[in-house]
Amino acid sequence: MNGFFDLPSDLGQSWLGLVGLHLREALLPVLAGLLVSLPVAQLCVRFRWIYPPVLGIATVLYAIPSLAFFVVLIDYFGQSETTVMIPLALYSLVVLVPAIVDGVRSVPPETLAAAQAMGFGAVRRYFQVQLPLAVPAIIAGLRVATVSSISLVSVGMLIGNQGALGNMLYAAQTYGRPALAVNAVLTIGVLGMLADAALVLLRFLLTPWMPRKGAGR
């Protein structure tokens, strides 16, 4: 009963089950954030005047502690995974929009002119030139968003055991079993680092034209 991976019954899950739940609660919001941030970023690139206010709102949203978001959302979505995932999606959005805007903007005008000269329309130019060239910036944003999302899911523990691996923290405290807290912190940390490594790998695969030295930051 007191092994490293033996969880108290209140968690209602095995360790592996919690890992799966944790990944789902953390990664779905990042995916949602990415899907929404692409058009938003494109708007910001297209209409430059939108960008400063968007950036301002993003900064304020990012500064609001996750727990406050959770509590306010409980009224609408109950003590559920949805309540945890909505703020995480917002945080991802807020990290990704500036990353994508900067990435797309950094595409040199000569390149765009060349694409135009080759007869690319706006849509084709976006998907075949701007977006691929912005991949490194987008992945950099995704790395920040993913790692912080994986870490923040644990706070969901405070709203009725919605924190996946974070729920082990409550059990650790209540039943005086520090090993459970060590397990939670290490598992979440390792998941974050693996996700980060996976994204670095993805960048290498998506940008075969980039030089292959040094993982960079």
């Binding site: 920040v144 870490s151 974070g166 650790a172 939670a184 912190v185 979440i188 390792v190």
Partner: peptide
């Protein structure tokens, strides 16, 4: 960055 702040706090 990957270590959860809240988890570290409880630990």
């Amino acid at each position: 960055r990957a270590l959860p702040s809240f988890g570290l706090l409880v630990l």
